[in-house]
Design a protein around this nucleic acid. Structure first.
Lengths: 205, 205
DNA sequence: TGTACATCAGTGAACGCGCGTTCACTGATGTAC
DNA sequence: TGTACATCAGTGAACGCGCGTTCACTGATGTAC
């Protein structure tokens, strides 16, 4: 049965969102197309009217998540540009760790993305490069050149690794998992080059 | 056909090693038991004479890898205890990034281990806690208490995240992938608390 | 504005395939005498 | 030391199952007149 263009667009959105949520929670290989389509309120055949394959849908879901997260992170906080401390508080939080479905896709898929097709790894790489740039802008203006860039790379990498490892250890040792988040907020905060902000993070809120 | 105890023990070893290699390369869901057994020179039924399930074999392979890596890392370098710089040079190398099969299982499975059974995540967590302790011992003696512990947690997390992200970005941007390794060696080296060593890392070898 | 009809998003049965696991069987090993 | 036989690691066919994808069909939409 044919459906209105509006409804068809809504269905496409529902597929992207269901795929994103389920893939972040269980991994690409951990969800089937039937389940994704059912979650979107459709039958499995409908996917192929919108996307050429499961992988194409996964790629679309990844891009969608990375765009959304980029906007969320860079949105002004109380009218001002977010600081590195704001980013760390947001990203390295228990809420983020415990919410696979709505969290950052990079933390959810870091170690498996290299095994997927080029479409997925190219989109992942773009998203990571963008995160590094956001981190670089948040560092103190007195830092320059290679040092500034390297700190931004280290912060971006450690944030993603931190959430991934906090999740990996959460079941077997909740205390260690929490410790990872606290330690990274503090140690990475000290890399901002801004001594006032570093002191703020050191208080360990 | 029955086989000598010696041969049976060798077959068990071959299964653990084949499983470890293939799972690190392609993920647990990316390899079948038939392929693991074929790689070990056996038929698929043989697995169940040695292990109750595929997951039990995967858990054994994970423990085996983490023990081996722990021994490799802590072995004295030229008669002396390895420094943090030695660990970073070893772990954050292009060789490690490019050798999934023989590399550290934590970097290969960080983001997917939380979705597996408890046997696997408990062993992963033990291995990570051990890595944190090794890192802690390599920091300068002047660092103490919570600061020392937090730096060790940050270093261990960023090392694993660094290799995972260097791999994730390697296909789409080899330059960015290399940059991650260099940046982490340098920035993490500066966390050792040993200014001589930090300067050494800063030269960016 | 009203009617006729081509379009095409979505349905659901069917495709071949590989998965993890089971099981009756084999036959060299290793033990009991 | 030599013989008889129970053991059990490994074989390979078979199990049910869910996977991603295809396809003939449906019928409301939206266009052409």
């Amino acid at each position: 049965l044919k459906v209105s263009k509006q409804q068809s667009a809504r269905n496409r959105r529902a597929l992207i969102e269901a795929a994103g949520r389920l893939i972040r929670e269980r991994g690409i290989d951990g969800v089937g197309v039937a389940e994704i389509c059912a979650e979107a309120g459709l039958t499995h055949g409908a996917l192929y009217a919108q996307f050429p394959s499961k992988e194409a849908l996964a790629a679309e879901a990844l891009t969608d998540n990375l765009h959304r997260k980029h906007e969320e992170m860079t949105a002004p906080r109380a009218g001002a540009e977010p600081t590195l401390g704001d980013y760390l508080t947001y990203y390295l939080s228990r809420q983020h760790r415990d919410n696979l479905a709505e969290g950052c896709a990079m933390a959810a898929s870091a170690s498996e993305i290299g095994r997927q097709g080029e479409a997925l790894s190219a989109r992942f790489t773009d998203g990571f490069a963008q995160l590094v740039e956001v981190m670089e802008r948040s560092l103190d203006d007195r830092l320059t050149g290679a040092d500034r860039r390297q700190r931004a790379l280290a912060v971006a990498t450690a944030m993603i690794g931190g959430v991934a490892l906090a999740r990996a250890t959460a079941k077997a040792s909740p205390a260690l998992s929490d410790e990872i988040l606290v330690a990274l907020r503090r140690v990475l905060g000290q890399l901002s080059g801004n001594s006032r902000e570093a002191a703020h993070q050191s208080e360990g809120r």
